[in-house]
Design a protein around this nucleic acid. Sequence first.
DNA 1: AGTTGGCCTGCGGAAATCCGCAGATTACAG
DNA 2: CTGTAATCTGCGGATTTCCGCAGGCCAACT
Lengths: 326, 326
Amino acid sequence: MNAGKPLTIVSQNEKILSLMQRIEKIAPSDSSVLLVGETGVGKEVFADYIHRYSQRRDKPFVKVGLAAMPADLLESELFGHEKGAFTSAHAEKKGLFEIADGGSIFLDDIDDVPMPIQSKLLRVLESGELMRVGATRPIRVDVRLITASKIDLKLLIERDKFRSDLFYRLNVVPMHIPPLRERSDDVPRLMNYFLENYGNGKPLPVTPRAMSALQRYSWPGNVRELRNVAQRLALFAEKEIDVKDLPAEIAHSGGLDVLLKKCQTCFYEDAMSFSQVMACLEANLLKQALAANQFNQSQAARHLKMSLSTFRDKLKKHSILLSDSL
Amino acid sequence: MNAGKPLTIVSQNEKILSLMQRIEKIAPSDSSVLLVGETGVGKEVFADYIHRYSQRRDKPFVKVGLAAMPADLLESELFGHEKGAFTSAHAEKKGLFEIADGGSIFLDDIDDVPMPIQSKLLRVLESGELMRVGATRPIRVDVRLITASKIDLKLLIERDKFRSDLFYRLNVVPMHIPPLRERSDDVPRLMNYFLENYGNGKPLPVTPRAMSALQRYSWPGNVRELRNVAQRLALFAEKEIDVKDLPAEIAHSGGLDVLLKKCQTCFYEDAMSFSQVMACLEANLLKQALAANQFNQSQAARHLKMSLSTFRDKLKKHSILLSDSL
DNA sequence: AGTTGGCCTGCGGAAATCCGCAGATTACAG
DNA sequence: CTGTAATCTGCGGATTTCCGCAGGCCAACT
């Protein structure tokens, strides 16, 4: 974290650091940027970062989520309309492109844009001008375009759902933001950062066991989910955060959840029998107990509340070798 | 769905229909609205709906996500700044409140707003004017405020993290948007709607089994997650959508996942032994097999690939009664 | 060097599990 | 109503599972 620079991207992951260096290099250039990454990875945060480092930092930065909007509403929203252009157009309206004139515009979920809107976006990019709905004269706009997609747009192009010519103009600078599970090394520092943030500057310590569970979790909701968890922890946790304070799906991320996912293949995909599934579950439970107890069979058996003899009989039954190179 | 009205809220759930009726009633009133609901329920879509039904529909509707922004950046973003107000303020800048003048502004994640920003927001609401950073004269603004929170702000007030006076001004019209899992009856129509949307108007049929799995799933990411799933299905599915086309966590939502969740309580929270956990898993598997086979023991045993005798022995072992009123 | 505690190993007996079988019952088609 | 097929039921034998026990090994302590 650089002193004096307002920075919301907390990371020491080399993929992210490399992204940030690239951003600092291209931000002043005014090139269109396409950010690709899963929901919750922080595409908007990266867009902010780009805008901050651009020459347009003192101009408007308008953000639009494109999903869930019908084409006609979206058109009006982005490009504005003239009075009387349609029944409910009681007055002329500036679109967000006009509002952003001189600055930047961030279009989230570009993969969700209907074809007619794609055409108009292309025109803006090619000619630097737009037509309001119902207008006869174009309006010039000077806007830097930053877009975001949660999937690879090439998939849509292949299926004729996205214009390749528009794609090439958007994709001048492509940037892939990795999901949080691919940079779990950042989980501890992100969690500590948000906890301090929500704790009014007072850091709230996390036990090593809790931090391990947080790091093991797959974070399907990415950084947004982590931030939400941090917010709740900062509200409800007392002196420090232990495993018992974590949401169930995270606290158990090292437990039967993992176990079950291992056995789903058994039961559904491989159409195994009841006894095979139970055997699979059992074998995995035994292995986990061993690993968790440094391969001390006596401790592992006590952990599972069974006798050492039973434990050993089961290891033999499942041909489980005594090694930490399983 | 009303013909002729642009409507993005697809639902026949009575909670949602009642919300929509309430919105249509209060939208013209210019009152501040506070939307509360989990991430992904579509708070922004409801905000759009409110703006559409207001007298300000032809004025700007600016949306801001407040999370993940440091206070000083956010302040500048919302309220603008004067040239020289700070080192990197090379020119004067209009804030988003000014840009939205005459229209509406939507502030998402209001629960994430730092105290200093809360103070300035309160002033805007109380006096109808704001001070740019570094300014000596206030600027009048006429903006309708719609805010969104993913948690109950009263929790923050209790912990002195949110100003109660600001809350009362924001919460003029409170609206709770239920999570998708509380209106699973909408899942089929939402899925069909999005599939048609992404399928260029061509509806893609979903088998009853697949639709059951979709309806059983808990949708932690709410409508956003459902839409993302629909988008992928529309891209990759062939003639119709069956269970095998669904993501693993949805396809299996009726299987071992549920089973495991039942047993998590056993192993972790109740500190049960290995044999107790296995017994718990076993009992639940047997019950599920019975229920899935209309309480026909022979079929259930074949389903589990075990002999009828074994099956019956196990039912006895676990004291499982033969009834569909379990 | 001797003692103590914990772990590992193999073994045997009691209990539990698995499943085939025969007869009774039920549901369905003609 | 009859015949057939499927299901249900109780039982007993073979197999598997559970676990206590005794002896050996190892590390730590006195």
